[in-house]
Nucleic acid binder design. Structure first.
Lengths: 126, 126
DNA sequence: CTCGAAATTAGAATAATTCTAAATATATTA
DNA sequence: TAATATATTTAGAATTATTCTAATTTCGAG
């Protein structure tokens, strides 16, 4: 692991914020001002390939990078805010249906976050 | 509903192939050779907004458009092929946890499709 | 028919990501 | 240590899906 790979891994794992490549780049530049965005992308895809982090693909937003520890995502349909949620594991059901060919799953749950709920009950949505 | 909106809706619903905007454009041009890609995008987002079709966002692939009838997606991790799968509905569990704020969910299941499985068992993966 | 709104068009603009080729750093081994 | 090989990083160009813009066309209501 190179210093950049290690540091990018640390940044992703330390954050619970689902950072974009660009945010990671900004963070990394604090320590290594000369680093390039290409290096960030290179290392992010290397880390994804080896399974040390995972990529979260969303609509209308650049990809985000996340720790691999098992959890699902909750996305506010109004403001787009992304947070984590723990749900019953679907693995058993999927293994029964797909056998050894099953690899993993990605579950996204859409909802209205408390902030947006508050906003829309106090005044009409713009 | 304009003629384009209607026809695009029909194309998406008639296909079980999860078409990209560009594929829909190609299909639509058979009947309306003068149509522009912008019109396809305009109508696709209108149809998504009204909930008549849904957009499927994937990694390393342009967005695809799909009928709304409830079903989940199965994605081959090797070749990227997308197909449909029917699974137990998670709605009950999600409503219990999130209440009225719950809107919907999007589940993607990753596996190795039969074709790729066959290929990799007969010879070593390149 | 005429007006105005909505839809459509072509093409430019945008933005995230990937690619390319040169430069740099690191490791290997003599 | 020097010579060489290999891997990483860099800057910036290229790519690609999608959105935006402004002009044009279509079409229904009066």
């Amino acid at each position: 692991m190179t210093k950049y790979e290690k540091k990018i891994y640390d940044i992703v794992n330390a954050s619970r914020k689902h950072l974009t490549a660009d945010q990671i780049y900004t963070e990394l530049k604090k320590e290594y001002p000369a680093v390039s965005l290409a290096t960030v992308y290179n290392n992010l895809s290397k880390l994804c390939d080896t399974g040390l982090i995972r990529k979260v693909t969303l609509e209308d937003s650049p990809d985000r990078y996340d720790r691999t520890e098992k959890h699902d995502h909750l996305i506010c349909q109004k403001c787009g805010k992304l947070s984590d949620i723990c749900l019953d594991d679907l693995t058993h059901q999927l293994k029964t249906q797909l056998g050894d060919n099953f690899l993993s799953y990605d579950l996204k749950v859409f909802y209205i976050c408390p902030d947006c709920r508050k906003r829309s009950s106090s005044k009409t949505t713009v």
